[in-house]
Amino acid sequence: MSWFKRLKEGIQTTTKNKKETPDGLWYKCKECKEASTMKEFRENFYKCPKCDYHARIGSKEYFSIILNPGYTELFTNIVSEDFLNFVDLKPYKDRLDEAQKKTKLVDALAVATGHIGEFNIPLTIACMDFAFIGGSMGSVVGEKIALAIEYCIKHRTALLIISKSGGARMMESAFSLMQLAKTSAMLTLLSDAGLPYISLMTDPTTGGVTASFAMLGDLNIAEPKALIGFAGPRVIRETIKRDLPAGFQTSESTLENGFLDAIVNRKDLKNTLENMFSMLGVK
């Protein structure tokens, strides 16, 4: 009775592309273009209830998904400065002001400390916010990671860094480059202290972030279908002068190539992390 049974998922007319929905009540998936209620979307860990697309979320959301209630945000008083007086199409100073106003965030990374799971394993999370200048890593991101690592060592907590970044922040020039060295060097101290570090890569994790702390976890994990790479796809396309193969630079291909331990669905994130940290242990 194919008259009454829908053979293909979704409404097949083109109207779905036109329909604008008011913010706040509905969530329209970027991937499958289907709409769901915001409530459904939120309860589904900010994934599309229809196609499981992992929407980009911020540090606040990750903290509340992963940590037990009652966590504390740390180092919120460290802010970026336009010390080079960097001006491209806009002064860096204006970009910072705009980003702060728009996102209500201090910079592209937030740190929170608390506990995870029923055994209350102490965990500190440093999580990037893509909404803040593309999650770019400047001095503040580097400093907060360094402080988070020192906090972990002092208070004997495990470390999770959630990456979501376009790479280094060009407007801080060489200072942003040196954050690769700063964060990586600090991770050696965490390792010396015998504390576990898990790196979670989310969409997108590229550039200097991938080429430093994101790839240096005791365990490297990722959300499904995230873009993970060093050079951006556009740069590679221009270099090799042909189209990129399907599935290039995804979580899935990164795992196949041997650089990820596991891909974890966001709904399983808390359980998986709790499990991993309980096995690695906080000595």
């Binding site: 990586s184 050696t188 790839m215 050079a231 270099t239 630079q249």
Partner: peptide, 26 residues
């Protein structure tokens, strides 16, 4: 710059650089 190519990405350009930075610091 490090080579931005297909094989370079597949063989872990980012990991190779990250690892070197990490190891060189100690």
């Amino acid at each position: 710059g490090a080579y931005p190519g297909l094989e370079a990405e597949d063989r872990g350009q980012a990991e190779a650089i990250a690892r070197n930075i990490y190891e060189m610091s100690q």
